[in-house]
Nucleic acid binder design. Structure first.
Lengths: 188, 188
DNA sequence: TCATAAATCAACACCATGTCGGATTTTTTC
DNA sequence: GAAAAAATCCGACATGGTGTTGATTTATGA
């Protein structure tokens, strides 16, 4: 093996997978280090060699997911001419491609702040586009609008995940986009 | 004293207040029974006489708040002619009047499901009004719209609480209402 | 004042935690 | 392939919160 950290990566992966599996059943707060290690087939001491506690493990999982999302979104977000509808679509596609992870991180046992951070990436981009498009609008109204709309998208997404993601991400993104397009008259 | 349960109510109140106070500093997960009792000046055994654990205490606090909200909202919600804007206003007024409680239950250390339940009460009412108003609209679209809009209101509310509730609840309700009014063209 | 209910107190076993030092296994390096 | 380095395992430990118990004290209301 060339990668000197190959072994620790395997170990970390086992721990991550064990936690993810357990999060389907119960909230993070009632998951113990002991149980994670039991399921992962690892020694408890090994856990503490990598993470300080269960929340630390969870935080690192989320950070990794976030980095992945960001990498996938960057090409879209750095293109200034990219329209909000395309951005919305791309964000929902990202979530769709990581459905299994999203279901636990964004689901009822998950962490809302995470969803806000992820969706927030797209939001920033759209907000600046918006400011160009409505130069006369009160910036506070723009902020209010985007706060509202971000919450709406997250709610839609949560329902989508909760109900088994029957629709495609594009269908969902289009619905969100249509509501947002209507709502944006608020700025006029 | 006439109420035979006066003593236990005082005890419970002390425990509730202690927990609420602590929730300003740290999340529920890192609050212990021992610490609550210490702050409340009560014996740990007394806690277990009333609650099974910290989460049980929290759940009962929320249930009580919810009952209070429902009582305040019922007159508005049972009146079929009550317009959505009035309902929105009333819901936000309720939250404003319980600002201190809301800040912890709905804030970052709080439980989002609670906010959804409370706002959901108003939502149901508006949704039925809406179905009368748009008899030709696809019911699925109505559901999507209200999922979105509920999430938006909660997001607005969270920001409002987070930023110190400088605006009045009416200002906030009006902003929410205007966005929703614009967005409802989605159903046309 | 008396009976009852509630809160106190001390003590208990229980269990996960976080941290060791040292043995063992795996990986890397030479 | 052997030595060195790194990662994991193992057992043990003190620690601290948990939830329960039974006996005792305190407060309430009749």
């Amino acid at each position: 093996m060339k990668n000197p950290e190959h072994r620790v990566n395997t170990t970390k992966k086992l721990l991550r997978e064990a936690l993810m599996e357990m999060l389907k059943d119960k909230p993070l707060r009632s998951i113990t280090v002991k149980e994670i290690c039991g399921r992962a087939g690892l020694n408890r001491g090994t856990f503490y060699a990598h993470y300080s506690d269960v929340f630390d493990l969870m935080a690192q999982i989320e950070a990794e997911m976030e980095a992945g999302f960001l990498a996938a979104l960057t090409p879209v977000l750095t293109d200034e001419r990219m329209s909000p509808p395309r951005v919305t679509k791309k964000v929902f596609q990202c979530l769709e491609q990581n459905a299994d992870l999203c279901r636990v991180t964004i689901g009822p046992n998950g962490d809302r702040a995470f969803a806000i951070r992820v969706i927030g990436k797209g939001r920033e981009h759209c907000e600046t586009s918006c400011r160009r498009l409505y130069p006369n609008a009160d910036p506070r109204n723009i902020k209010t609008y985007f706060t509202f709309v971000t919450g709406g998208c997250i709610a839609l997404m949560e329902r989508w995940l909760r109900e088994g993601m029957k629709d495609s991400s594009d269908v969902l993104a289009e619905a969100a986009e249509r509501i947002m397009e209507c709502g944006i008259r608020y700025l006029e």
